[in-house]
Amino acid sequence: MEERKYLTTWRKYIPVIRLHLKRSLTEEQSFKLNITDFESAGDRGKSGYTFSLQMENGKVINNISGSAVARDLYEALKTDETIKSMIQDKAIKISVGKSFVFSIKTTHISSFKPEETAG
């Protein structure tokens, strides 16, 4: 199992992802990825490059162990200081579909804590 073969590819996209992540605070964002960037990194064949990556407070909350593309994206995101600070206190869903469109949807995590009622 080759490790991190998509990391370099994702790092090329970091400036674009950063921009869309910022904009996703107001509305869902999407942009088309260049499939040849990924095919040259590793051929996924029929399984394709589709995945869904869900994060809360900068931590992955869904299972991405079966997707090298998703794992490497997460690695690229968490090593970028600007993105790291942007994804704190937020719930973020990133997905790539069959048409190779990268989508980011961000929602704020409520920091509201109900007060304890003293009896």
Results as ranks from 00 to 15, higher is better:
87 I>V: 15
12 K>D: 11
108 H>F: 06
64 I>M: 03
13 Y>F: 11
78 K>W: 06
15 P>R: 08
50 T>S: 14
29 Q>G: 03
81 E>G: 08
42 G>L: 12
84 K>V: 12
119 G>M: 10
73 L>V: 14
1 M>L: 10
116 E>N: 03
118 A>Q: 13
117 T>E: 13
58 G>K: 02
22 K>V: 08
90 K>Y: 12
15 P>T: 09
93 K>T: 15
31 F>H: 00
94 I>D: 01
37 D>A: 10
11 R>N: 15
61 I>D: 04
30 S>T: 09
42 G>V: 03
88 Q>V: 13
69 V>S: 05
65 S>A: 14
91 A>W: 06
93 K>E: 12
63 N>M: 07
76 A>H: 07
4 R>M: 13
112 F>W: 07
92 I>T: 03
21 L>Y: 00
44 R>P: 01
76 A>P: 07
4 R>W: 09
52 S>R: 05
18 R>A: 02
84 K>F: 07
105 K>Q: 13
13 Y>N: 10
89 D>H: 15
116 E>Q: 05
31 F>K: 01
84 K>S: 11
14 I>E: 04
104 I>P: 00
56 E>M: 07
4 R>T: 11
17 I>S: 01
81 E>V: 12
13 Y>T: 02
50 T>L: 03
36 T>I: 14
71 R>K: 15
82 T>N: 09
30 S>E: 11
88 Q>F: 06
99 S>K: 13
50 T>G: 08
19 L>Q: 13
91 A>D: 10
74 Y>D: 05
99 S>M: 10
74 Y>P: 02
75 E>V: 07
42 G>I: 04
22 K>E: 10
32 K>V: 04
10 W>R: 07
8 T>Y: 05
53 L>S: 00
92 I>S: 00
68 A>F: 04
83 I>G: 05
31 F>V: 00
103 S>T: 12
33 L>P: 02
33 L>N: 04
100 F>I: 11
34 N>F: 04
65 S>I: 07
106 T>D: 02
18 R>P: 01
67 S>W: 03
61 I>T: 15
107 T>F: 02
40 S>F: 05
60 V>R: 08
103 S>L: 08
68 A>W: 01
14 I>H: 02
99 S>W: 03
43 D>W: 04
14 I>L: 15
105 K>H: 11
72 D>M: 14
54 Q>D: 05
86 M>A: 06
54 Q>M: 12
94 I>Y: 00
84 K>Q: 12
20 H>R: 08
55 M>D: 00
44 R>C: 08
95 S>D: 12
115 E>I: 07
6 Y>N: 12
28 E>C: 08
107 T>Q: 11
85 S>W: 05
67 S>N: 13
11 R>H: 05
88 Q>A: 13
66 G>K: 12
22 K>R: 14
106 T>L: 09
110 S>H: 03
68 A>V: 11
16 V>G: 04
80 D>Q: 08
95 S>T: 08
102 F>Q: 03
110 S>P: 09
35 I>H: 05
28 E>S: 14
87 I>K: 08
7 L>H: 05
24 S>K: 03
4 R>P: 01
